[in-house]
Write a protein that binds this DNA or RNA. Structure first.
Lengths: 258, 258
DNA sequence: CGTACATTTGATCCACTTCAAACTCGGTGG
DNA sequence: CCACCGAGTTTGAAGTGGATCAAATGTACG
């Protein structure tokens, strides 16, 4: 449960104190607020101590007061079924916003837990809200993130109700791949931050099924897996199995023009 | 395809020209904007000709320019799978907002089609956006609607990945029931605006399975069905099957305090 | 280095799908 | 007014993808 304390790299990131110079700003602030705006946003953001693996960022029912941007590491969001099982609703990688689904509640509707050592920026919502009034770009940015989440959720509903096991896993890997790519990492080789169990939970499949699909994909020469290390050998075919055309998969979140 | 033109009741509703006197305002504007604010919102809203059954309100890919509030009738939203099937992502009843998931796109990410003769209020987004800058309550109202949609989607993901056929159908009926109740109609007796096929599509089940569950529920004395007319005989048990406690089911969308 | 946990692999089972056919009902035209 | 039609719905029978159960192997960590 409780694991080793930290890593040098993460602590260094945590010391980063300005949005303007943050290497993730182009992702986390895609609307490119002007310098003055970024400066204002900067002042309301709190840096937090890194979370250790298994720590909660917040729990379902906690008082909602902040949204978060992941700086390093990764998180899983999940809700509880009435019989006590967890249902993972999302994984969050660096530069992604977490907690927006709490906005109209007094409490978070999901729990968020670190999959590994993780650092986040905390953005107190009350201050973000008043700032959003003054900065139209920032307001749109928030709308944008929320509506992207809604669109992603619809795709997830499609996956869960229409796709078979292979299509689900392929879609999952293709999606992770493009998220890594977007952050400037290789879309071909990456490390899964979550367990097979968590993948299965997220995709609505049993662990065994996930494992079997992984091995099937390996024998088809689509991927090569070694524990949590994944190498995508045949990206084209992966996308074909996922049932998505190449361009769709790599689309970053689009920005509103008007 | 093309069906009988209209009904008197719908046309009367369509003639309603003020948000302030609209019988749905308490639902569609739950934050109770003050009179002056409502007046401003009122000016930007366009009333539209009623949609006939099968008409599209908008299509996936259409240029995004407005969000809509349903006044009467009902809509289904759906996305297309890459092999041309439709996946229904939502049904919309009167007082509910439609189209918010398009906000950060230049085009709607889903299609929206009338299940019966339907009237809507059109709210041009560009004007809503500028109005939102002046009216914090309105802005929160929009955030609120979006984050409610996100939370509902998470619940749907849970349903699709963890619940069996009976739990899915029970959840669906209980949900419809509370939405009718919220609008002041009986939560016990109502008419399904969608076909069995559409229910199955939405719930990730085959038509035949939906039909079988309906008959099973009837023999259990939980519901009585006659075509599209549904009467809930044992609400308590329906909620038990759905795996939800009574209070959860009736919860209206919560409002942010801060 | 050993214990606990994660992953893989194999064998069996079952809830739901699929295929097939009967039935219902609203509409339509003779 | 009624026979007919077609879409929607129900019911039955058979098939299957993935779940579940069980056990072996691999791996991380104290």
């Amino acid at each position: 449960m409780s694991s080793q304390a930290n890593k040098g790299a993460c602590l260094n990131l945590a010391k980063e104190t300005r949005c303007m110079t943050c290497s993730l700003s182009a992702l986390c602030l895609p609307l490119s607020l002007n310098l003055e705006d970024i400066d204002q946003l900067d002042r309301i953001i709190k840096r937090r101590q890194p979370l250790k693996k298994g720590d909660h960022l917040f729990r379902q029912g906690d008082h909602f007061d902040s949204v978060y941007a992941v700086r390093s590491g990764s998180l899983k969001n999940y809700i509880m079924t009435n019989d006590g099982e967890e249902q993972i609703t999302n994984f969050h990688l660096p530069s992604e916003l977490v907690g927006l689904d709490g906005v109209d509640c007094s409490s978070y509707p999901v729990s968020s837990k670190a999959l590994e050592t993780t650092t986040v920026c905390e953005i107190p919502y009350s201050r973000l809200q008043s700032l959003a009034q003054e900065l139209p770009d920032l307001r749109n940015q928030i709308f944008s993130s929320m509506s992207k989440e809604i669109r992603d959720d619809k795709q997830m509903m499609l996956l869960l109700s229409k796709k078979n096991a292979e299509e689900r896993v392929a879609t999952f890997l293709a999606n992770l791949s493009s998220r890594f790519k977007r952050r400037g990492y290789s879309p071909y080789t990456f490390r899964l931050p979550m367990s097979r169990n968590e993948i299965g939970n997220y995709l609505g499949l049993a662990v065994e099924t996930v494992s079997r699909v992984f091995t099937r994909f390996q024998s088809l020469q689509v991927i090569a897996v070694n524990g949590k290390e994944v190498h995508i050998t045949d990206r084209q075919q992966l996308h074909e199995i996922a049932g998505v055309t190449e361009c769709e998969a790599d689309q970053p979140n689009k920005l509103v023009a008007s």
